[in-house]
């Protein structure tokens, strides 16, 4: 399969959901090749759902997804697999195989798909683990590592084949500020090392957005409410986008947070027992 000169991702009239529930309705957007695009949105706004469809794990209810020149769901099974081989994916919790060490996890695509000798695979794995600062942890199992380390190891596995498309699902969620900043730096380094790589990051981390994004797609209430560069987004006057970017609670009225008298009496009796 000849490589397209760029692996942009385009969505045309996309309707996505589960069973009969529509999560995203009539999305048309384009994520440019060779850039870092951030898919932004609140919890439950369909960011991860969109990612699963771009990965080909779910079929859309309607519409098309193009990866480079290929309409993903109109490809034959063989062509679909060839396109998918060009993707590296960092799942939210790394999705490392628990029964394999970090080294074996990172080596997996190579040992399953190539006839490279063990020494070459080992050297590639060490190189990729060193890129994410985990070269000393090759023999550790995923459950022996922190969440941040698992995510970095997931990133090492995602890039082990130098894929032209890298997709990351919430790479900084649940990480402390230092680990988050390190993850952002890793993604920026990736862009520097692989200028043609299309990097898609699903996130709701504003700090991360301002650090890494070239392009932003914002999802809200089942629609794409913004699709464009970072600078215009900073200047937006759209009320929802402003509220999101300013981390504003808006005019939300907090109801009475206290329990009712009966419940309070029951709890007090339990606490005093």
């Amino acid at each position: 399969m000849a490589d397209h000169n760029g692996w942009d991702i385009r969505m045309e009239n996309l309707v996505l959901g589960y069973d009969d529930t529509v999560v995203l309705d009539n999305i048309s957007a384009s994520l440019p090749a060779g850039k870092i695009s951030v898919i932004l949105g609140g919890s439950g706004d369909g960011k991860s759902t969109l990612l699963r469809h771009v990965l080909g794990l779910k079929r859309p209810m309607a519409g098309k997804i193009f990866l480079g020149p290929h309409s993903l769901f109109e490809l034959s099974s063989g062509q679909f697999r060839k396109v998918r081989r060009r993707m590296g994916v960092l799942f939210q919790d790394g999705a490392l195989l628990g029964s394999l060490t970090l080294g074996q996890n990172v080596a997996l695509p190579l040992t399953e798909h190539t006839k490279l000798d063990a020494a070459t695979v080992e050297s590639i794995v060490q190189h990729k683990l060193a890129l994410v600062g985990l070269d000393k942890y090759a023999d550790y199992y995923p459950n022996q590592l922190s969440g941040g380390m698992r995510k970095r190891a997931g990133l090492a596995r995602a890039i082990v084949t130098d894929p032209p498309i890298l997709l990351c699902d919430e790479p900084t969620s649940g990480l402390d500020p230092i680990n988050s900043a390190q993850m952002d730096k890793l993604l920026l380094d990736m862009k520097q090392h692989f200028p043609d790589m299309t990097i898609i990051v699903v996130s709701h981390d504003l700090q991360s957005l301002y650090t890494i994004a070239d392009h932003v797609l914002v999802l809200h209430a089942g629609k794409a409410v913004y699709n464009g560069g970072l600078e215009p987004l900073r200047q937006t006057t759209d009320p929802y986008l402003r509220q999101f970017l300013d981390r504003s609670a808006g005019d939300m009225q907090t109801p009475d947070l206290r329990l009712g008298q009966e419940a309070r009496d029951a709890l007090r009796a339990w606490l005093d027992k």
């Binding site: 699963r52 990965l55 080909g56 794990l57 697999r81 998918r84 081989r85 993707m87 994916v89 799942f91 999705a95 490392l96 195989l97 997996l108 695509p109 399953e112 798909h113 596995r157």
Partner: peptide, 8 residues
Amino acid sequence: DALEVMDI
């Protein structure tokens, strides 16, 4: 899912 997207 990770195995699937690695074409395994």
